[in-house]
Design a protein around this nucleic acid. Structure first.
Lengths: 106, 106
DNA sequence: TTGTGTTTTGACAAGAACTGTCCAAATTTA
DNA sequence: TAAATTTGGACAGTTCTTGTCAAAACACAA
């Protein structure tokens, strides 16, 4: 199983930021976004763009792929949380992705 | 593993419709949507609303839950098809959903 | 407590994405 | 060929997302 825990994307980057005792203001400046936007990203109230994710991975020196996994898994979780058959939906999606990858259809 | 094959949602309902030799026009009327909209749904170019999915399940006498699984797994597959770590993202999402369900947090 | 820096919230306009709708072109069927 | 079916493009209306700003709420040292 994966080692990524159940911390949300927002909570995770907030944690990274606080570990380094940096204010939102500073990170937001480095990301070239508004402080309030970053605040909302940390509270999972706004999307993080591809660019923001990339810069975050640089700033905190973490793998970009891992960060994307955290981000996108969060989004999918959110989409399925109210669904009765959430887990089955994921299983079927997994089959489909494997099928498409196998057959080179992207 | 699930028994749902790798047919897309659109292809699937198109198949159901053609098996009964019914024109788009008729089904669209029953769904109370435009013929061209149904055409696009069958080609996966438009979203199917909750209501449309429900009516489709009635018209073709299939389980609504299964139809939703087909529909939503398609959407998720599409979101992840270009991602390098698609499968891992699904695994992490699965953990998260289980975690939330266990802790009753919806 | 006041003052200073930080974080959160709500509002707003601009832009993007999605919807239902119509019509004409293309395709299929008879 | 003619009729029916299917598809594609265009359109306005709506909803959702975005970046931006300013004020409110908060934390906390002096």
């Amino acid at each position: 199983m994966s080692k990524i825990n159940n911390t949300s994307f927002g909570e995770y980057i907030k944690q990274l930021r606080e570990d380094k005792h940096l204010p939102l203001r500073k990170i937001a400046a480095e990301l070239d976004i508004d402080t309030s936007t970053l605040s909302k990203i940390e509270k999972n109230e706004r999307n993080a763009s591809e660019q923001v994710i990339e810069r975050l991975s640089e700033i905190f020196e973490i793998d970009k792929g891992e960060l994307k996994v955290r981000y996108l898994s969060d989004k999918i979780t959110y989409q399925l949380l109210e669904e009765k058959d959430g887990i089955e939906i994921l299983k079927v999606a997994e089959q489909k992705i494997k099928y498409y990858k196998k057959n080179d259809k992207h």
